[in-house]
Design a protein around this nucleic acid. Structure first.
Length: 878
RNA sequence: GGCGGCGUGGCGGAAUUGGUAGACGCAGCAGACUUAAAAUUUGCCGACGCAAGUCGUACCGGUUCGAUUCCGGUCGCCGCCACCA
């Protein structure tokens, strides 16, 4: 073997070897246990960033480890290739999105290959190819048929920058998730998927996903947002006709305390009332503009205006005024709420401001608070707890507790046919229409003769192919200006018709790609029996930012595919790992104009004192100070990005992979450090050298490992071998059950330190060193596959390391003759004793008490108690 | 405001079921090798103390023979949701 560790040569050689052997192409094999390991596929933005590298390294380590454990492992890769950045790039460069996207895919694929990921590239998919998106279209039509997809004209979130509609999930703090532009409200006909139909299932099934992070399950449960309450109507007359103003409430027990009804500005009744009331119309307009930030909305002043309309109290018939309130959401429930100022903080604030009556109807059972002035303090006391309170001032309901009051009032409302108990969801149906070009065309045709309802494209005419040569100009969807695309014949009547030019939300593409990997290449079906072999994904890995959108959509989509008979799985991802972000230092300097200029950490020199504490930092080029702003995710605007490509060229893929796995546990954020990468490279060189020193220039390892008999070893040899096998046990557990790679690597490093001190040159000693090196190489192989591939050969093996079975520890090597016992006196460490393994408690106790160090602390004091934890410690209480 | 999570050396982190706090690495300090530097390598590296030892896992209290770990409270940071009736 070569003396020098030369990652570039080693890595390209290993990769060639794997490629020649088609080592990562995998076929379904019912005889072997399958393992589907999937990392979230990337958007082909141009180049990989460090977040990708971390994500895919984690997946690769797990895949390679599982493979060595005998699983039939599928690790595929694809491209989430539709989306807006391609259109923006197209506008900037005048290049069609298709070309930009495909160029990026080619480049990023090379990058992924240079990192040595064990990916089955024969299953690669790109969502922008007709082979893939035709099944989006096909399944959309199936959902239309099944009533899961439907068309509705509704108020939508309009992103003025991207000129498109956004789903509720894509609006963050009132701004577009991608552009950050303040979202406007618009009325547009579009297509929805009835995810609300699955709300209960999606909520309940969270309990079947114990291997998902708790916080992701909580976030999904909150997002689905189940509330139990009562929906009922306040009767009123409008032009002689009896109508109902519906509201939803979880506190129907306070119904007798209603003193007003508040409706949203967009409510039809508000629109009606505003017709002859310019002041009200103005107020409504003001509300619709609204402040964008939700956080501000929450603390914003309650504002309202009377509509001049009145409704009847559903039980008492009392006249109740209807107000427009800026705090009422049109998008939740019926866009109207009953106002109970005594028992709802928002209503209380509103009533105080506008002088509306406050009527207390609930109070603590043990208390008589009647006649006391009503203050915010009272509100908190009375409203806070549902339990322990009873109704007052509520006629026949007086004295009932919360649950009984709800039941009684709900029953009475039902008897009057005004309402009933209802479960209300926060989740809303998923709007998938986008007025964008670079997406999957929605396969419908609008025919002027066949009526308003669009006609489905027949299966035989699928896919509706997206023309690839167009370049958007920033003014809406270019498909709408391309007659060759939209002009078509109606499949029903044959007359001239217009093709739908909206495309699908790209979250559609990513909602089922994992099943396509499992049915790769099938041009006759969306999925086939192979999907039932692979699904569900055994391990899914990706960023926490997808905790709601992508994961919820995928869960929904999988259920629909199940219900329409396409797959057996009901949940797509059995196990979820949300990897942490990759952070880097941010350095800046205030310019003369007050604007901050940012510098890459690689160009900054950190100054430390003699203890290593950081005292300041200067720019390398001018030696002038720069300010450290802490660590944040890598971004262009902060100038703290790190290019994986340059690192691979400088250090090799293995050192980068090792550093990322060692620096932090996978779920924690990872703080980038060039020194840390240097340290990883140092370790790789050390590993290489230690093997080189053992096997020499053209040496082969001592292939006699199987012959080690533990009983024939001397004490030092036995201790060394025990360390080797104990490390194997720990690393196996860390990589498998615990999924913490940093401690696994630390354990191997520790073993390397032990190995360096083991200088036994006897034949037996050399065999033990050979065994240790083989174990070390195997244990590290999922993490640094290239170097270990070469080292495995150097150690005298001809087989492919990645197919080698994961080693098993020799139980005889793990046996300990004696154990060290820690002795505490009153809980403080005072001594250590060595006793034979498995010694009875009495013997341990005697040995501990006899220890001179311990004796010193015991003298003259009466023993009160001795606690013996076999194999671990003794605590003497005096 | 609600829910969830987290606070350990100069730094990243370890301590897996309540049982030796600080593994492993980075940075730092001292030495060896070298004409020199790099590379490599050896040792030290929580605080106070000459030492024996004492203190120490954000802070205060509790349970326990024993608490970084469990419980209650306070402070701080992070994440998500946020006028959801």
């Amino acid at each position: 073997m070569q003396e020098r560790y030369d990652p570039a040569a080693i890595e390209s050689q290993a990769q060639e070897h794997w490629n020649r052997a088609r080592a990562f192409a995998v076929t379904e094999d019912a005889a072997r246990p399958k393992y589907y390991c999937l990392s979230m596929f990337p958007y082909p933005s141009g180049r990989l960033h460090m977040g990708h590298v971390r994500n895919y390294t984690i997946g690769d380590v797990i895949s390679r480890f599982k493979r060595m454990q005998g699983f039939n492992v599928l690790q595929p890769m694809g491209w989430d290739a539709f989306g807006l950045p391609a259109e923006n790039a197209a506008m900037a460069n005048g290049v069609p999105p298709a070309k930009w996207t495909h160029d990026n895919i080619a480049y990023m694929k090379r990058q992924l290959q240079s990192l040595g990921f064990a990916i089955d590239w024969e299953r690669e998919v790109a969502t922008c190819t007709p082979d893939y998106y035709r099944w989006n279209q096909w399944f959309f039509l199936k959902m239309l048929e099944a009533g899961i997809a439907y068309r509705k004209t509704g108020i939508v979130n309009w992103d003025p920058t991207d000129q498109t509609v956004l789903a509720n999930e894509q609006v963050i703090d009132g701004r577009g998730w991608r552009t950050g532009a303040v979202v406007e409200k618009r009325e547009i006909p579009m297509y929805y998927l009835r995810i609300t139909k699955y709300a209960q299932e999606l909520l309940d099934a969270l309990d079947t996903l114990p291997d998902w992070p708790e916080r992701v399950r909580t976030m999904q449960a909150n997002w689905i947002g189940r509330s139990e309450g009562v929906r009922f109507g306040f009767p009123y007359e409008l032009s002689g006709k009896r109508e109902l103003l519906h509201v939803f409430t979880t506190r129907v027990d306070t119904l007798m305390g209603v003193t007003f009804v508040a409706i949203a500005a967009e409510h039809p009744l508000a629109t009606f009332a505003a017709k002859n009331d310019p002041a009200l119309a103005g107020f409504i307009e003001e509300c619709k503009q609204g402040t964008a930030m939700e956080a501000e909305l929450a603390v914003m002043e309650k504002k309202g205006m009377p509509t001049g309309l009145f409704v009847d109290h559903p039980l008492t018939g009392e006249r109740i005024p209807v107000w427009v309130g800026n705090y009422v959401l049109m998008t939740y429930g019926d866009g109207a709420v009953m106002g109970v100022p005594a028992h709802d903080e928002r209503d209380f604030e509103f009533a105080n401001k506008y002088g509306l009556p406050i009527k207390q109807v609930v109070q603590q059972a043990a208390r008589d608070a009647q006649g006391e002035p009503f203050t915010t303090d009272h509100w908190q006391e009375w409203y806070g707890a549902k339990s322990g309170n009873v109704l007052v001032n509520s006629g026949k309901y007086d004295g009932l507790d919360y649950q009984h009051a709800v039941d009684a009032i709900a029953a009475d409302l039902k008897a009057r046919e005004l309402g009933d108990k209802k479960v209300q969801w926060r989740l809303r149906d998923w709007g998938i229409s986008r007025q964008r070009y670079w997406g999957c065309p929605i396969p419908l045709i609008h025919c002027p003769k066949c009526g308003d309802v669009p006609v489905a494209v027949p299966d035989a005419d699928l896919p509706v192919t997206l023309p690839e040569g167009l370049v958007p100009d920033g003014s809406g969807n270019p498909l709408g200006k391309t007659p060759s695309f939209y002009e078509c014949a109606c499949p029903t009547c044959g007359g001239p018709a217009r093709r739908e030019t909206d495309t699908m939300d790209t979250f559609v593409d990513s909602s089922w790609y994992f099943m396509r990997f499992a049915s790769a290449g099938n041009d006759r079906a969306m999925v086939d029996e192979r999907a039932n072999y692979w699904m569900p994904v055994d391990q899914y890995i990706g960023g926490i930012e997808h905790a709601i959108l992508h994961l919820l959509y995928s869960r929904f989509w999988t259920r629909v595919m199940h219900d329409l008979g396409l797959v057996k799985a009901t949940e797509p991802f059995a196990n979820l790992l949300t990897q942490g972000m990759v952070l880097n230092d941010i350095y800046s300097r205030k310019g003369a104009d007050g604007r901050a200029e940012y510098f890459n950490p690689a160009d900054v020199e950190v100054q430390v004192d003699s203890k290593g504490t950081r005292t300041g930092s200067v720019l390398r080029s001018d030696k002038l100070p720069v300010e450290w702003e802490g660590m944040r995710t890598m971004s262009k605007s902060k100038g703290n990005g790190v290019d994986p490509q340059k690192l691979v060229e400088a250090y090799g893929a293995d050192s980068i992979r090792l550093f990322m796995m060692f620096k932090a546990p996978p779920e924690d954020s990872l703080e980038w450090s060039d020194d840390g990468v240097e340290g990883a490279a140092r370790f790789m060189r050390r590993l290489w050298r230690i093997v080189y020193e053992k096997v020499g220039e053209d040496g082969r390892g001592v292939r006699t490992v199987g012959q080690i008999k533990n009983s024939e070893l001397n004490d030092e040899q036995r201790a060394f071998r025990r360390a080797v096998h104990a490390t194997l046990v720990k690393v196996t557990d860390d990589l498998g059950r615990r999924r913490v790679f940093n401690t696994a690597i630390a354990a191997v490093m520790e073993l390397m330190n032990t190995l360096a001190k083991f200088t036994d040159n006897s034949t037996t000693g050399q065999v033990l060193v050979q065994e240790a090196l083989e174990f070390i190489v195997q244990m590290l192989s999922p993490i640094v596959p290239h170097a270990t591939h070469a080292l495995w050969q150097a150690l005298g093996h001809d087989d492919l390391l990645l197919d080698r079975a994961w080693p098993a520890a020799d139980p005889a090597a793990l046996v300990q003759d004696s154990v060290d016992i820690v002795v505490q006196v009153n809980g403080k460490l005072r001594g250590r004793v060595t006793v034979p393994a498995g010694a009875p408690e009495d013997q341990i106790r005697e040995a501990a008490l006899a220890d001179p160090q311990v004796q010193k602390w015991l003298e003259g004091k009466p023993l009160r108690k001795v606690i013996v934890v076999p194999g671990k410690l003794v605590n003497v209480v005096v």
